[in-house]
Design a protein around this nucleic acid. Structure first.
Ligand SMILES: [Mn+2]
Ligand SMILES: [Mn+2]
Ligand SMILES: [Zn+2]
Ligand SMILES: [Zn+2]
Lengths: 138, 138
DNA sequence: AAATTTTATGCAACATAGTTGCGTTTTTCT
DNA sequence: AGAAAAACGCAACTATGTTGCATAAAATTT
């Protein structure tokens, strides 16, 4: 028995609304990551753009999704599979962006290696974004 | 004797224009990375926004600057110190974003480690962005 | 050094992306 | 079911980025 959108919202103490259910279901059904624009296209005016922005922000805050910075200035979002909480994210996996199909995927099994920073620098978060050709496009 | 903006433009076979000189000098004078907005603020209407966009794109193409994706959807740019050419960039160093002062810096001495990707994935570029507290803010 | 060609810039107009306030609707709590 | 709290939709606005084209500046040729 898989976890449902409903469960996730309850766990995060969020009101169950139809926008949240639908957006969360889209994440659950999608392999890769989603940008704000993807969600907007998918639901084509079914709900307001602003609702999507606020929903994504809420999900980020609650540790339901994490954001992935990309070089082309379009932030992608993906479900957190690790045990992220409202306070902090622990998604320490590598992200892969395919230059062919454009998909962004979480490489859940590829852990971000630690690097030795110069004296005086303290790290709280590390992003590793690899781009190239994915297994479906090779 | 340090390299001048003029030299860099000549090396890249670019016309020497006052906008390019000024923007390039700003990069040469600045320790950290610059976002489009930073440059716009700095020169406050001295030249057109469009010129800044096009100049940054030209510098990127010619391998004079490289771009650094950030989580807050604002791409940063920094001078290439490695031997980047018009075709390809080889800036394989880690980038650090300070949550305190907001500065983004190239950690030129910290090399991006290689990771083993799953079967079928091929990598052409790797970004590693570490955020935390920089040495000036600790 | 002047004329010509090439390239870059500024401007306008547009497109896309993201934010904020507020009245209305929906959800939750009692 | 009714009251309180939270989320939504709409409008208006700001910010960010793109494109075409006339003008200006730089490089090249004569
Ligand atoms: Mn991920
Ligand atoms: Mn760098
Ligand atoms: Zn692909
Ligand atoms: Zn700092």
């Amino acid at each position: 028995m898989n976890i449902t959108a409903d469960d996730i919202l309850k766990q995060s103490h969020l009101s169950i609304t139809s926008s949240r259910i639908k957006i969360l279901n889209l994440f659950l059904e999608t392999k890769g990551a989603l940008a704000h624009g993807d969600i907007e296209k998918k639901f084509g005016g079914k709900f307001d753009r602003v609702t999507i922005y606020r929903t994504l922000q809420t999900f980020l805050d609650k540790g339901i999704i994490h954001s992935i910075p990309t070089a082309d200035n379009s932030v992608q979002y993906a479900l957190c599979k690790d045990d992220c909480t409202a306070g902090h994210h622990h998604d320490q996996h590598v992200h892969f962006i395919c230059n062919q199909c454009g998909n962004t995927v979480c490489l859940d099994d590829v852990h971000v290696p630690t690097v030795k920073l110069p004296i005086g620098f303290t790290s709280t978060q590390v992003h590793m974004i690899v781009s190239g050709i994915c297994k479906d496009c090779k």
